[in-house]
């Protein structure tokens, strides 16, 4: 297995475990009305980890392709990362205007 595949596998696995754990605990706490503040935070952390996992995988790819000097793929993965940033930008703009 290449280093890229190993790191991507680790990032995805870690992201799934952390996000599912937070979402599961947050869901149970909020449904039984125990520690609502903590439940809310856990749910947000779970959702953000979930959304950040593919983004983290893209960042890891940029780093690994740079290390192996595969420049076309450094460029492609950087564009993908910029596209993800652009959607965050779009979300901010919409919140101001709509």
């Amino acid at each position: 297995m290449s280093r890229l595949e190993r790191s991507i596998g680790a990032v995805l696995r870690g992201g799934v475990i952390v996000s599912s754990g937070c979402l599961g605990l947050g869901l149970v706490l909020s449904l039984i009305h125990v520690a609502p503040a903590a439940a809310g935070i856990l749910l947000q952390v779970g959702l953000l980890t979930l959304i950040a996992t593919p983004a983290a995988r893209v960042v890891i790819s940029i780093v690994e392709y740079t290390a192996t000097r595969e420049w076309p793929f450094v460029l492609l993965t950087t564009i993908v990362f910029l596209e993800l940033l652009a959607s965050a930008g779009a979300a901010l703009i919409f919140n101001r205007r709509l």
Binding site: I51, S87, N95
Partner: peptide, 9 residues
């Protein structure tokens, strides 16, 4: 994720 970020925001 590109879509979800917008919906989340």
């Amino acid at each position: 994720t590109a879509g979800a970020i917008i919906y989340y925001g």
